[in-house]
Design a protein around this nucleic acid. Structure first.
Length: 483
RNA sequence: GGGGCUAUCGUCUAGGGGUCAGGACGCCGCCCUUUCACGGCGGCAACACGGGUUCGAAUCCCGUUAGCCCUACCA
């Protein structure tokens, strides 16, 4: 029986939760869930200036919205309480642990104080560069055994020969010659520990078994491995997942449309659509051992994703994020949802109190029809917008459409429509067909005329549904100016 | 400069010695249609390059090229 799986997602609070980070978190989450393990959320906030409580909230909210629940980590909305036995889950608050570990390494002679000044180091680096040589710290303070009478940075003694091997679950074994790695700094002159040091100490302290993170950390891993060894800890498994790119193959950012998770929410995407699309970006789920062979099979549930997730199946190369694909997945998912599952997302899109009150005043059957006849929308934002005409009369009219459809010829038909009383779908259909007969009109002519009168535009749900939703009084009122 | 990673349609990918190189998104065309959509059918489109190994290479090996990451008292 192997150890229970523990994974972790450790974002830094930069003011937004990046979609690339979400995908990494998703892989951690999928793996933990797959093995009934633990998923930890830890805030990497050693950069004081950016680490406000607000920024931490943004991470919590993003994670909650996208549906990635964590077993250990911050309690959303609370600044100083955490769930899980390894807290606090904010690096800033774990300094005592770091200091103890640094002291331990110093005492054992596995790390040492380096009195080289920053200026000196910079000068040596510049010189090396000028000569076209690689700069690496030569370890000149390594055996000096300096005491703490002078402020000094602390370096880890790295192995000087052989190679360090990362057994990466997605990339395979990666061997790096020890000579290319210098004695790196684990604590600054002011005593604060550096990122690569904190990560290792935290991962060990929290019992992380699988380090799943972006592959921009691959090159840091050999350094970290040396630290694990110095500290006398067993190595976790590593899985470095490739980054996600924009269309121009550059790092995904706002100018590609959206990069932060909240933007995707505002754009009208379902959290499950984001999850599915992200999961399938760089990984192909093999349900029952085989990949999807039709569009239908592309749409999977979380349960299916969890059931077949394998870190080793993740693609090695970076992938371009395609908003069109997300949109398609979103649409497919919307089509499959019950109106009650869609409603909360629509409410979010509307947000305005007057709209919400108007909506709440309606009976369920009405809501069901309103959402049901709009299930083919690509996103919730559009759906919310196309439904808005139900709550407010058109503020303006498409002039071309008005001229084309609201003609003298349809006026008599309009008057007859206004006189109708039975708004049941079939009755409406029969009555309108009779009207068309009488006036020698085509459905297209009348339907479009009605749409313009009702919405100001030439687009609306199917015309009988539109009328049923508006109701007789409103239909008559909106028709009045045109008869 | 050094070290590392990567490379199949425009995009996401399946395939890992013998396949017409399969699917999905997008795109194009046709059909359906009361609008926008949905849906149905069809089409275009790829193994980065060069050498090996082999009867046979997209698949294995070696180079080249290109892109990315690291090379901080940033994270």
């Amino acid at each position: 029986m192997s150890k229970p799986v523990v994974t972790r997602f450790a974002p830094s609070p930069t003011g937004m939760l990046h979609i690339g980070g979400v995908r990494t978190a998703l892989f951690c989450w999928l793996y933990a869930r797959r093995h009934q393990g633990t998923f930890i959320l830890r805030v990497e906030d050693t950069d004081l200036t950016r680490s406000t409580d607000d920024n931490i909230r943004i991470i919590e909210e993003g994670m909650e919205w996208v549906g990635l629940d964590w077993d250990e980590g911050p309690i959303p909305g609370e600044t100083d309480r955490y769930k899980g036995p390894h807290g606090p889950y904010r690096q800033m608050l774990r300094m005592d642990l770091y200091r103890a570990k640094i002291k331990e390494l110093l005492d054992k002679g596995l790390a040492y104080r380096c009195r080289c000044s920053r200026e000196d180091l910079d000068a040596r680096r510049a010189e090396a560069e000028k000569e076209g040589r690689a700069f690496s710290y030569d370890g000149r303070c390594r055996d000096k055994a300096y005491d703490d009478s002078v402020p000094a940075a602390i370096r880890l003694k790295m192995p000087r020969e052989g190679e360090l091997v990362v057994e990466d679950l997605v990339k395979g074994p990666i061997a790096v010659p020890a000579v290319t790695l210098d004695d790196w700094i684990i604590a600054r002159q002011d005593g604060t520990p550096t990122y690569n040091f904190c990560v290792v100490v935290d991962d060990v302290d929290m019992g992380v078994t699988h380090v799943v993170r972006g592959d921009d950390h691959v090159a840091n891993t050999p350094k970290q491995i040396a630290l694990y060894q110095a500290l006398g800890y067993a190595l976790p498994a590593f899985a470095h997942v490739p980054m996600i790119l924009g269309k121009d193959k550059q790092k995904l950012s706002k100018r590609h449309g959206a990069a932060s998770i909240t933007e995707f929410r505002d754009l009208g995407f379902l959290p499950q659509a984001v999850r599915l699309t992200l999961a399938k970006l760089g990984w192909t789920p093999k349900v029952g051992g085989k990949a999807a062979e039709s569009a239908e099979e592309e749409i999977l549930t979380d349960a299916q994703l969890i059931e077949c997730f394998e870190l080793g199946e993740i693609q090695k190369a970076a992938a371009v994020f395609d908003l069109d694909k997300l949109t398609w997945v979103n649409q497919k998912l919307i089509q499959r949802l019950d109106w009650r599952e869609i409603e909360p997302h629509l409410r979010w899109q509307w947000r305005r109190r007057d709209l919400l009150e108007a909506w709440d005043a309606r009976p369920d059957a009405w809501k069901e029809l309103a959402i049901g006849c709009n299930k083919n929308r690509a996103n919730l934002h559009d759906m919310a917008e196309t439904l808005a005409f139900l709550f407010a009369r058109p503020a303006s009219f498409d002039e071309a459409a008005k001229a084309k459809f609201l003609t003298e010829a349809v006026k008599p038909a309009l008057r007859e429509v206004a006189a109708l009383e039975d708004y049941g779908h079939d009755a409406l259909k029969a009555a309108i067909e009779a009207i068309l007969q009488r006036h020698g009109l085509k459905l297209k002519d009348l339907a479009q005329a009605l749409r313009v009168a009702f919405t100001g535009t030439v687009v609306s749900p199917p015309i009988y549904d539109t009328m049923a939703l508006l109701g007789r009084d409103e239909v008559v009122a909106r028709l009045a100016p045109w008869m």
